[in-house]
Design a protein around this nucleic acid. Structure first.
Lengths: 212, 212
DNA sequence: TGATAATGGTGATTAATGTCACTATGAAAA
DNA sequence: TTTTCATAGTGACATTAATCACCATTATCA
């Protein structure tokens, strides 16, 4: 396994700073998570901030009745804005984070992050950029659900998912898609059929090929 | 008119810091805006960050076809997270900000805000708290449009609006409500009628009384 | 005062989505 | 191999919201 220092250097160029790198090496913890593993859940305490080295996380919002909605994905070189706010404000998580694929992550302890803001302008800039990026992602999620119809949302979902997984072939079920879009299987099945007729995708069992 | 220092001291207790207060006094500019006045618009450059002294702003998201959607309100003692990200990242606005009522605002020049982050922990904490709060507001907006039906959203809208205006009597039209909820007048008229039948509101011309 | 515009009430219709019921098929397990 | 389960296809129907058409009332302006 590579050193934490090296991993940060390669995946987070904006964090290249001698002092900061040393602190991250000292206090960061490298972990691997399997696809489907939950990293944060609604209401859970957040004591770490995850820096994503490889793989991808999906960030979901849930309703009381357990229906959920995907907000956005995180990729290598990114981090979760929510854990930032939660870490700094000592609050419970407002979202769920699940590994979209097997991932490698460096966990940073919450209590240090705040002091780094003043100590390392590099860190402060990274944090602010993260906020900017996640803010924009949330606005995109809002655009999608407020202004788009389900067929458009579905196609965008498929494109996003295949981009994140770096694979035109998605191994998933209509049921799972319905859950992440806060819809129902039947609706998704029918819309997928439409997309297939439009030759934008090909359908198979547990399998969708996105043509783009 | 009160000094900027005094205004900040009274409305932003979390910014009480001798050095910071002096800088805000030096560089801040006090302005008044009338109800309905636009402070930021989609795509506009943001060169100031507004600290709200009195009144209220509403923050809206727009679609290409000019339909819009209210995201949240800002009140005295609050500021706009979007102008923060935009100021710091030198980006265009992603949202529209409109005065919900006559308001008093202190404008801070963008180029200073970043340096204050390192100089004044007080400022840094304020900025981080602002992000946390706006993040939560955006998630609430998402919950509302993703998981609630229009009648629930409408009632919540009326309650929020009367809370912000500190008045049970709202002077508005069905058309305007429809625009802010990204719906249509007829739908809103019918749902308002329902709410009136449920004795949750009373309707008049240009006038809705919220009973709660 | 009379004309015009803004506001809002309402029926009829359509479109989008969700719900229910049932079937078919392929995969995994007994 | 047989059984069972997960997956998905589809018709019928219900619900929510949007759209269209038209009218009534009130406010504003010439």
């Amino acid at each position: 396994m590579m050193s934490i220092s090296k991993l940060i250097n390669e995946n987070f160029p904006e964090l290249r700073d001698r002092g900061l790198a040393a602190e991250i090496s000292d206090s960061g913890r490298f972990i691997r998570v399997k696809e489907g593993e939950k990293l944060m859940d609604y209401g859970s305490e957040i004591v770490h901030m995850p820096l994503l080295i490889s793989g991808a996380l999906k960030i979901l919002r849930m309703n009381k009745d357990a229906s959920e909605l995907i907000l956005y994905y995180l990729q290598a070189g990114e981090t979760c804005a929510m854990s930032l706010t939660c870490c700094l404000a000592n609050q419970k998580s407002e979202i769920r984070a699940v590994a979209e694929e097997d991932s490698e992550i460096i966990l940073l302890p919450a209590q240090l992050l705040d002091s780094w803001m003043l100590k390392y302008p590099t860190w402060k800039n990274f944090v602010m950029q993260t906020y900017q990026a996640r803010f924009v992602e949330l606005l995109n999620a809002i655009d999608s659900i407020a202004f788009k119809k389900m067929d458009e949302r579905l196609l965008q979902y498929l494109i996003d998912k295949s981009t994140i997984n770096n694979n035109h072939v998605l191994e998933t079920t209509h049921q799972k898609i319905a859950e992440e879009l806060n819809s129902t299987r039947e609706v998704i099945s029918r819309l997928l059929k439409q997309l297939e007729n439009q030759e934008k995708i090909e359908l198979g069992r547990n399998r969708i090929v996105v043509k783009f």
